[in-house]
Amino acid sequence: MGKTNKDKRDLYYRRAKEEGWRARSAYKLLQIDQQFDILSGVTRAVDLCAAPGSWSQVLSSKLNSSTTSSAKIVAVDLQPMTPIEGVTTIQADITHPSTLQQILDCFENELADFVCSDGAPDVTGLHDLDEYVQHQLVWSALQLATCILRPGGTLIAKIFRGKDIDIIYAQFAKFFERVVCAKPRSSRGTSLEAFLVCLNYKPILHWTPKLINNQSTSEFFAGANLMGAATKTATTVGANHEERAIVEFIACGDVNDIDSDASYAIDGDFKRLDPVQKPTAPPYKTALEMKRRGELARR
């Protein structure tokens, strides 16, 4: 979060800076946990697509709140991330087999209780494209989760709700006893963003997930009979259709809390706060360096 962001009138944004969170997204995980109590008893947690680290901050705060706590938290992202106390940071690709082994090494080859992913692509404004890329991130998170999550564990993953999201619901429901679509109050109502809350992981019988480099998602899940699976409906006998499902939709957070879509006035004595964590590798950094060297020319 910067000092002159266009969201400076967003009270979640302002509250996050005041309370020391790296991003307003911290409240999304806090409100999901408030609703589902997903972090109770968790001793090994993995935060995928973690940068800048607000969800890792929440995990560290919740799981290491007592002096007797021995929770292990691993944060993974392609981008570098400034260290957080109580969190092991891995700069790596979540789809690469070596990343899986690094996580297991941190857990001394024990399986995780909790996996979360708040990752999202750079939005283009082309909704079908954005939804497709986001779904690929969700599937990548599930790939890794099936390899490191213990039976009975929990997965939280950001999704973009679109016309085919019910296919995702149906396929994820094969791996978990309960799948819920959660919308935290801190998530803007005008956004298609929501979160899959997948409870009580149940491994597929006679299928052993194995990450292989350069393997497609379809190839990975082929043995689980998910991707491209055809079903027959009573109304279209003989026709092939993707299996679909409807899941619970639950709004998380106090109804009397801040409205994330509202624009609030700034008081006269308002004081700008420095970012909790400055960007470690901003995308514009290379362009600025080239400009200083005179390597950028107007076209």
Rank of each mutant, 00 (worst) to 15 (best):
R185S: 00
I165V: 11
I204K: 10
Q134D: 07
S54F: 10
A75W: 11
D10H: 08
Y13L: 09
V247H: 14
T95Q: 13
D128M: 13
P52I: 05
G153T: 05
D128A: 15
D33I: 04
N64Q: 13
R244F: 00
L48A: 05
W21V: 03
D77H: 02
A170K: 10
T280K: 09
D122K: 15
E131P: 00
D118F: 14
L273G: 05
D164W: 10
I212H: 14
Y132M: 06
T88K: 14
R178Y: 06
A245Q: 12
T95F: 08
V247R: 10
I159E: 04
I94G: 08
R185C: 01
P282A: 10
R44H: 08
V42F: 04
A145K: 14
E85N: 12
V276A: 13
L100S: 09
P97T: 14
E289P: 02
E295H: 00
G228D: 12
E242N: 15
K232R: 12
I90F: 02
A194T: 06
H206R: 12
T217H: 02
S263T: 08
T280M: 07
P203Y: 14
V87R: 09
P80H: 09
D47Q: 04
K183W: 11
P203A: 09
F36S: 00
V74E: 04
K8V: 10
T233Y: 13
G152S: 12
E289T: 06
L205Y: 01
G189P: 00
R272K: 04
D269Q: 11
P80W: 09
A51Y: 06
S191I: 03
Y12L: 04
I250W: 05
V138Y: 08
F221M: 10
M227E: 03
C116H: 04
W21D: 07
F36T: 03
K202M: 04
R244Y: 05
A120Q: 15
I32T: 02
L11Q: 09
D261T: 04
V46W: 08
L211I: 15
S186G: 02
F249C: 09
P282Q: 07
Y284A: 06
C252K: 03
D259A: 14
I266G: 02
L142S: 01
R298I: 02
W21A: 01
